[in-house]
């Protein structure tokens, strides 16, 4: 059972589950089409980016509870910098936000390494700190977003020279996600750094003895997580056009998606594709509940219960794995 979950079977199973859920959606709502997919992709984008960041930290043997709060900081910073800015200035604003994300993540990692306080406590404290920073930057939802940035994630893909009918079903949000993850994670995964993330995640002692400098690697993992949190915060601003200083429900959702995606809490195993698929599975369930005209608050309860159940299941598996 553990080998099956550890291998690719789990990811394939998730893909099949997602396909079944989409078929079910089509059955519930016969006119579900490109615009429905676009909505799904847009609502899933911040969750997916938060989950990728969380997955990387979990693979490296840590956890980052401040991911939602960092997203809030990135979102309000982007909205404040871009409010009334020209397109050219907005490019710099985006770059600044990404750098800020890297910095926030690196600070989290550095505090863990320097203070020797466990990651879960440090990132809990930093969760409060980043929440405060977001509130200081912007006290209430506001600011603005550059139109070209919004166009990156909203609507279907249109390619010059290709009839729109062929491409409009593919939401831009999915393309954005794929491009970003491919641009950031694939080079890391293929380099020594990616190998080191897995090494310190599975056994820091062994990694240290094979010449991996554990501290800097850990800081790097948190920095990459911060970068993805910043992208997630940007995507919130992209989707809504404003900055949101109160963190959304991304923390628990990202932990649940990471566990459901086959990354073992405790580190060293799993990939990025599984968690991303898991995000879409969870979001599709949410969308189906809405389409079945379930009260949104009840849907939130169902969703929360699913997430807690998934995390509980993952914890049971992790305990079994340690014993076995």
């Amino acid at each position: 059972m553990m080998r099956l979950i550890g291998g690719n079977g789990w990811t394939i199973g998730l893909a099949v589950l997602l396909a079944l859920l989409l078929v079910a959606t089509k059955a519930i709502q016969p006119d579900f089409g490109p615009s429905g997919l676009d909505n799904l992709a847009r609502s899933a984008l911040p969750f997916a980016l938060a989950t990728v960041g969380m997955a990387i930290v979990v693979i490296a043997g840590g956890i980052d509870l401040s991911v939602a709060a960092m997203m809030a900081v990135a979102s309000v910073t982007a909205a404040v910098l871009m409010d009334g800015a020209s397109d050219g200035q907005a490019v710099f604003a985006v770059l600044a936000v990404l750098l800020l994300g890297l910095g926030m993540g690196a600070l989290n990692g550095a505090l863990i390494v320097v203070t020797r306080v466990p990651d879960i406590v440090v990132t809990l404290a930093m969760l409060f700190v980043w929440q405060g920073v977001a509130l200081l930057i912007l006290n209430a939802p506001g600011g603005g977003a550059a139109p070209w940035l919004r166009a990156l994630a909203v609507g279907g893909v249109t390619l010059p020279g290709v009839p729109p009918a062929f491409t409009e079903w593919l939401p831009r949000g999915v393309v954005f996600l794929a491009v970003v993850v491919a641009a950031v994670w694939l080079p890391i995964r293929r380099s020594k750094l990616g190998l080191r993330f897995y090494a310190i995640g599975s056994d820091p002692q062994a990694a240290f003895r094979s010449g991996v400098s554990v501290g800097p690697t850990r800081i790097a993992a948190y920095a990459v997580c911060g970068l993805f949190a910043a992208l997630g915060g940007l995507s919130v601003t992209m989707a809504t056009g404003i900055g949101e200083p109160i963190p959304g429900p991304y923390l628990l959702a990202s932990v649940a998606a990471v566990v459901l995606g086959g990354v073992v809490l405790g580190g060293g195993r799993g990939g990025i594709l599984g968690p991303i698929l898991a995000v879409f599975v969870l979001r599709t369930v949410r969308m189906d509940l809405t389409l079945l005209s379930v009260d949104p608050n009840v849907a939130a309860i169902v969703e929360g219960t699913i997430m807690v159940a998934v995390v509980m299941f993952g914890a049971v598996l992790a305990t079994r794995g340690r014993r076995g």
């Binding site: 505090l111 203070t115 306080v117 406590v121 440090v122 809990l124 404290a125 930093m126 969760l127 409060f128 700190v129 929440q131 405060g132 920073v133 977001a134 509130l135 200081l136 930057i137 006290n139």
Partner: peptide, 15 residues
């Protein structure tokens, strides 16, 4: 001190 500053302070105290 604004609310944001307080949260930062509480987080910093815990850490």
């Amino acid at each position: 001190m604004p609310e944001g500053g307080r949260r930062i302070l509480y987080g910093a105290i815990i850490l």
